[in-house]
Simulated scan of single mutants.
Amino acid sequence: MAPKVAADGTPDLKDYADVIDPSTFDQILEMDDDDERDFSRGIVYGFFEQAETTFEKMEKALTNENLSELSQLGHFLKGSSATLGLTKVKEACERIQHFGKDETGTEEKDNTTALAKIKQTLGEAKGDYDEVAKLLRRFYGEKV
């Protein structure tokens, strides 16, 4: 079944529950005072800027093989994603947060394996982000 769209072409976010948690995102929408959705738009577009900057920092940390920074950046973006209900991005960032550590929470001794896992997961996170960013841009009336 194809996802539903409103007459104006905006997607029905409930049809995308695999990438965005509708109940969490609805809580953000409830804070809007008007039909223009200025408040939630500001939060979402602020997240876009934050995510893109964080992904750039992650790429640099990956190049520098800095597992500690990758973990911190994964943790940071996990929290931001969770606040908006962006489930796939949140889950990928949580994996990045933990890949550089062993089961006791100390830094993993095999950096090569951890970095390879992070590199793959970072690619997945960016793909998931691109998917949800396009969806939300359409939701807010942008042509993408």
Rank of each mutant, 00 (worst) to 15 (best):
Lys88Arg: 14
Tyr129Phe: 13
Phe48Pro: 05
Ala116Met: 10
Gly127Asp: 08
Asp110Met: 06
Lys57Val: 00
Glu65Ala: 15
Val44Ser: 09
Lys57Pro: 00
Thr112Leu: 09
His75Ile: 12
Phe47Ala: 11
Asp26Ser: 11
Ala51Cys: 07
Thr104His: 14
Val89Ile: 14
Asp35Ala: 15
Ser81Arg: 06
Tyr140Leu: 07
Asp26Phe: 03
Asn66Ala: 12
Phe139His: 12
Phe76Cys: 00
Gly141Asp: 09
Thr83Trp: 00
Asp128Cys: 09
Asp12Arg: 13
Lys143Asp: 13
Thr53Asn: 10
Glu124Tyr: 07
Gly74Pro: 06
Glu91Pro: 01
Phe55Asp: 10
Leu86Phe: 14
Phe55Asn: 07
Arg138Ser: 15
Pro11Gln: 06
Val89Ala: 08
Lys134Ser: 13
Thr63Leu: 00
Lys126Asp: 08
Glu30Phe: 07
Lys109Glu: 15
Gly141Val: 08
His98Ile: 01
Asp12Ser: 08
Val44Cys: 07
Thr83Glu: 05
Ala92Ser: 13
Phe48Leu: 01
Thr104Gln: 13
Asp33Cys: 06
Glu69Pro: 06
Lys134Gln: 03
Gly79Ala: 10
Glu56Thr: 10
Gly100His: 04
Ala61Glu: 04
Glu65Asn: 14
Pro3Ile: 08
Ala125Ile: 02
Gly9Lys: 06
Ser40Phe: 00
Ala116Leu: 03
His75Ser: 13
Gly79His: 02
Lys117Glu: 12
Asp130Leu: 14
Pro11His: 09
His98Val: 02
Lys78His: 05
Asp130Asn: 12
Leu122Ser: 11
Glu142Ser: 07
Lys88Gly: 07
Glu49Met: 03
Thr106Lys: 13
Ser68Glu: 10
Asp18Trp: 00
Lys90Met: 04
Ser80Ala: 14
Lys134Thr: 11
Leu73Pro: 07
Ala133Cys: 10
Lys4Thr: 13
Ile96Asn: 07
Gly46Ile: 02
Leu122Met: 11
Lys143His: 02
Ser80Arg: 05
Phe47Gly: 14
Thr104Asn: 13
Glu30Leu: 09
Thr24Arg: 11
Thr24Met: 13
Phe25Leu: 10
Ala6Met: 03
Asn111Val: 12
Glu108Tyr: 05
Glu124Cys: 01
Thr53Arg: 14
His98Arg: 06
Asp130Phe: 02
Lys90Ala: 10
Glu124Met: 05
Phe39Gly: 07
Glu142Tyr: 08
Gly85Leu: 00
Gly105Ser: 09
Arg95Asp: 11
Ile20Lys: 03
Lys143Val: 10
Phe99Tyr: 15
Ala6Tyr: 14
Glu131Pro: 01
Leu135Val: 07
Tyr129Asn: 11
Tyr45Cys: 03
His75Thr: 12
Asp102Phe: 06
Asn111Pro: 00
Tyr140Ser: 11
Gln50Pro: 01
Ser68Asp: 14
Leu136Ile: 01
Asp32Ile: 01
